[in-house]
Design a binder for these strands. Structure first.
Lengths: 226, 226
DNA sequence: GTTTGTGAAGGATTTCACAGCA
DNA sequence: TGCTGTGAAATCCTTCACAAAC
C-alpha cells in the first residue's frame, strides 16, 4: 500500500511483538510470492543472492529476516524452494482459509467482491454489510448483504477474523468502531482516513492516492517533458 | 497503504535523496489529508499534539518531519492550518495536475479509470494501453485505448509523468520495461510482482493480498472463534 | 502558559564480514 | 568452493528534553 499505516500490537490475543520486527513480517509475504514463482518455474534450490536480485534487496537482509524464524538453508547450497515456501506460509498462517467481512458495497465494495485474487490465496469474503437498507438484505453473487448492526453477530456466526472497509471517508470511523466492537483484530482499510483503533488491532491501508502523492515529490524538479 | 516496495532514487532527473528520509516523504501526504479535514472543519490553528492524536503518532515526530522542509509553526500557537496545508502541497508538487497513463484495461484497469478519487487530487488518467488489439484502438469513456507499442509516443505527446500498471503478473515486467523506456519515473503497480526497474524509477505497489498476508501472522495464535 | 524547532540520546534496522558447514 | 547464519558495526529513524518564541 502503498504505505500501510499500521496500528500496532501487544494485545492479549494478538501475537505479541515477541521480538520479530514488524518490517520483517511485512516482507515475508514478498518472499512467499517469489518463492512461488521459482517453484512453478521448476527451481529446486535458491540462494539469498538470487532472491535478493528478484526483490532488489541485499542477500544479507533476506538471510537475517529468515533467521528470526529458523535455519532453513544449507551452507553451500541455499534454500530448498518448496520447503522454504511451505515454512513461510505456515509462519504467516497462510496454510488455512481466512474469512473476511466487507463493509460498504458501493462501487469499490463490489469490485472487491469481484476481485479474483483473494480466493487462491486463502482469503474469502463471506459476508457484506451496508448502511443503505435498500442494499442490505439483498445479495451480491453468493454473498448476503446485511445491515451494519448485524456485524457483531455475523462475525461470530461465520468465523470472520478480518474486516475490509470500503465505505466513504465520512462513515469510516464508525465502521472501525463497529468492527473493533465485534472483536475484529485485522482490518484492511480502503477508506481515505486515518483510523482510530486500539493498539491491539492491526490496520493496513490501501490507498493509491497516498502512493501517488508521495511519488510526485520526486518528480517535482520537473524538466519539461510534455 | 499496503506495503509499497519502493525502488529508490538518486537518479539525475529525479529529485535526489538530498537528505530528507524517504519515510518522511511518505508521511507528508498523511499530514496533507488531515490538514484538509481540519480545514473544512473550520479550524484555524493546529498543534503537533493535535495532529499526532489524529494520526496516532508522537507530536515530536511530526515536528521533526516538518522541520526538514522549513519552520511553519509559531511557538505557543501551533501551525496555521491553511498555510501548512498549502506549503506541504507545494512541497509534494500537489499544486498542479499530473497526467498518468494506465496500462491494462481489464476488470481492474476499468475500475481504476472509473475511480473518482484521483481527479479531485490532481491526478488524471489521460491515456490507456492494452496488449489486446480488439480493446486497443477503442475508447473507454473519454479515454482512448492504444496498443502498448504506442506508450513512448503517447507519453511524450500527452505529458504523461506517471504510469499505472494493471496487467496480469505474467505481462507486468514487459510493461515496466516499456514504461521505463518511455522515460516514466513514477509507477503505481497493481500487479502482484516484484518489479525490476532502474534505481532512478520509483514504484509503489498496491497489493491487498500482501497486506492481508502480513496481518494473518498476528492473528495466528488463534483462539477458536468460528 | 503553550508549543515550536532541534541537538543529542536512544532505539531499530540494515549491512558487514566471517566462522562454520556442505 | 559456495553459501548460510549471525554477532558486531554502521546506518537510519524516533523520541527526548529544553531553550527560544509567542
Amino acid at each position: 500500500m502503498a504505505n500501510g499505516y499500521t496500528s500496532d500490537l501487544s494485545g492479549d490475543d494478538i501475537r505479541s511483538n515477541s521480538d520479530v520486527p514488524e518490517v520483517v513480517v511485512q516482507r515475508l509475504p514478498l518472499y512467499v510470492r517469489v518463492l512461488s514463482q521459482f517453484e512453478s518455474a521448476g527451481a529446486e534450490m535458491v540462494s539469498s543472492e538470487h532472491l535478493g536480485t528478484q526483490l532488489q534487496m541485499t542477500p544479507a537482509q533476506i538471510r537475517k529476516d529468515l533467521s528470526y524464524f529458523g535455519r532453513f538453508g544449507k551452507q553451500g547450497r541455499g534454500y530448498n524452494v518448496k520447503r522454504l515456501a511451505l515454512e513461510l506460509r505456515s509462519i504467516l498462517g497462510l496454510d488455512r482459509q481466512w474469512n473476511a467481512g466487507l463493509v460498504g458495497v458501493g462501487r469499490l465494495g463490489r469490485a472487491i467482491i469481484a476481485y479474483p485474487g483473494f480466493r487462491p490465496e486463502g482469503f474469502r469474503v463471506v459476508a457484506a454489510f451496508d448502511a443503505d437498507p435498500s442494499v442490505a438484505s439483498s445479495a451480491i453473487g453468493d454473498i448476503d448483504v446485511r445491515p451494519i448492526a448485524e456485524i457483531k453477530n455475523t462475525v461470530a456466526d461465520l468465523g470472520i477474523r478480518i474486516g475490509i472497509v470500503a465505505v466513504p471517508a465520512a462513515n469510516a470511523q464508525s465502521v472501525f468502531d463497529a468492527l473493533v466492537e465485534a472483536g475484529i483484530k485485522a482490518i484492511l482499510n480502503y477508506a481515505p482516513v486515518a483510523p482510530q483503533v486500539p493498539p491491539n488491532v492491526k490496520v493496513r491501508g490501501i490507498d493509491p492516492v497516498l502512493a501517488l502523492q508521495s511519488m510526485t515529490y520526486f518528480l517535482k524538479p520537473d524538466r519539461t517533458d510534455g
